[in-house]
Nucleic acid binder design. Sequence first.
DNA 1: AATGAATGAGAGTTCATTCAT
DNA 2: GATGAATGAACTCTCATTCAT
Lengths: 205, 205, 205, 205
Amino acid sequence: MPLAIPHPDDEPTRHRILRVSAGLFRQSGYPAVSMRRIADACGMTAGSIYHHFPSKDDIVAAVLNLGTDAVGEAVSAAISDTTNEPAALRIRRAIHAHLRALHEHSDFTSANVRIFGQLPDPVRTRNLESRRRYEKLWDRFLSDLKIRGGIRTDMPVEAMRLLLIGALNATLEWFDPHKGAVEALANRYSDLLLNGFLPSDRVST
Amino acid sequence: MPLAIPHPDDEPTRHRILRVSAGLFRQSGYPAVSMRRIADACGMTAGSIYHHFPSKDDIVAAVLNLGTDAVGEAVSAAISDTTNEPAALRIRRAIHAHLRALHEHSDFTSANVRIFGQLPDPVRTRNLESRRRYEKLWDRFLSDLKIRGGIRTDMPVEAMRLLLIGALNATLEWFDPHKGAVEALANRYSDLLLNGFLPSDRVST
Amino acid sequence: MPLAIPHPDDEPTRHRILRVSAGLFRQSGYPAVSMRRIADACGMTAGSIYHHFPSKDDIVAAVLNLGTDAVGEAVSAAISDTTNEPAALRIRRAIHAHLRALHEHSDFTSANVRIFGQLPDPVRTRNLESRRRYEKLWDRFLSDLKIRGGIRTDMPVEAMRLLLIGALNATLEWFDPHKGAVEALANRYSDLLLNGFLPSDRVST
Amino acid sequence: MPLAIPHPDDEPTRHRILRVSAGLFRQSGYPAVSMRRIADACGMTAGSIYHHFPSKDDIVAAVLNLGTDAVGEAVSAAISDTTNEPAALRIRRAIHAHLRALHEHSDFTSANVRIFGQLPDPVRTRNLESRRRYEKLWDRFLSDLKIRGGIRTDMPVEAMRLLLIGALNATLEWFDPHKGAVEALANRYSDLLLNGFLPSDRVST
DNA sequence: AATGAATGAGAGTTCATTCAT
DNA sequence: GATGAATGAACTCTCATTCAT
């Protein structure tokens, strides 16, 4: 179940601030987005925002957590009740879900990836728990596939997870969902990550 | 041949500023590094820097380009005169070179990856040419391998390059060269990228 | 008879605001106490206070006047019906009453002394009448003692009053009623003010 | 020797900022004086001040310490080399020095007394050492007089010092050196403090 | 009576940049 | 080449106050 972001009509101010902030953060990065810019984009004044959030960092923290949780829920939903499917298909489902959440779902997920590296430590810390939760989701998933013989067993799941998520998130820097289709992207990435760069009849030593 | 960074003794001020800036950018990100911080770290005053660079953006641009060029030269050197080696080995060489440049070689490379997403558009633009050059290096390399049958032919080289560089650069967010060895990291990533996540006796449909 | 501050149970909101404000003013000073802090301490919102007072300055003015009047009434009560007592004893009574009002009686008195110097002129002005009244109380008292020969006649009562009240009020900056007894303080100060610093057998020229 | 405050002509900016700030603090109190107000009064912009002082609190702290030290030095100079004089005369000298420093010498001393009660704790703390030094100056002075039999022995010196300094400082709230003469004020206060309020032929019990 | 959202001014502070010396 | 003083705009955040509900 995706995050319940209300309709703009009767959307509470608090949610509007978060939604608008996420968009701005995604577009311009954390330090380039001032409280005034957020306020302007919300149709209010900078001071008014402080009736809804005690500080800019609290806005950022909320955006981050909503983003991480959204991806986590998307991927979790995509692979639940699929235990009988082949490993390759299940991984494809997870990759598709992650990329969809990143590029289609909302600004929250993409803002998360974009600005995390720009944040001061205290704000980062507030997102770590949610991040760890998502990492564990993948680690458990990959471990399960390993046990069933669905993926290679000579590689720690952490390494696979780090490469995979790193590669997927990096698409944010160039992929434009308006021009290309997320599905096509996800198919290609799945294929490359599952089967590797080498031709199918060879195995590298 | 790596970039010729002079020894600190007779190093021209201009180079010192760039070297110090790269280190700071890598560590703290673009907006957190003020001209005064750079000046302090260089043992001079903020005003003096303007005798060497017309603006902060010019420093950033120079750092970016030096970084991109450094990786380019490292990878280029690693795969030149290897045309007779097997494809897998050549890709391994390229991946190792890229990761070494990122984690060991100099602050320029890593600063580049770290801060690129935080920059205002005009500065980004000034690094695009250099980036394109590096991308073309990979695309030519991969195309060559493709023609020789060294890598799969059912995938555009751009997709492979984007996934590969994206995955490699993402290691900057977690990999600590003090604790682990870059070589081990490069070996694992090479193996995973070349052969994929699936067991070696299967091929995903 | 002290000011009739009602019991918290059926205390009108107006009085609660004043009482709470006085406590905060005493503790933190005038500018450090915001309307929101007052409101929080009263269990209401900042906006609600404006149903009882038109502005922050009106609250301050009310607190000031209640404070000045409280000391005035305390001292007045202490010296009424004592016309037959010795001058020294009567002054002691007045000093005791003033110090008690300052340190024990209520926050109004001490808040008054504490914040008066921090206030913008218009607010100060609104307390002047009440201050003048208290000054006249002392001046009449001292004049009366003078006529009766109870205190020295070579000194204007204004000078004596200014020194005395100044010295007493200054105790607010260091005296802690929890650690010492107000009575002991009052005794010492009375003794010093009445007899001076010189040994009792000498008179300074 | 009084504090060396340079002439306005070639006065260093740092000193000008302190002098101007002291005047404003004295007049309006600590919170009512903003950095912009100081800057305006100095003929510069708010940002420029930060080239001379790292924060507003540092300005305040400097003003406070200059003020306390100025009084201390004035009093210290007034009573040095007077050990052979009568106690009453020596106390008169000290009182005169204190009041002169307060009302004539400079804005620093008066600002000190005026704003100390309005300051946040950290700033207060930075002035405590200097204050303690001044208190000890008086305590040693009074103790010495006590030993020589110059002042009464039935009262702790701390009590006498607190009453005395409190009374003297309180004159800042009403005394206007333009209209009255500091000397006359000092004479009256000395007389009252030395001999007390009671007629010279009586001693209160 | 009371609330909660909103405002606009202003707080202290930082920053890239300029320029006379 | 280098400095130190200065600038002006922007930053996050606080505050007294207003007002529809």
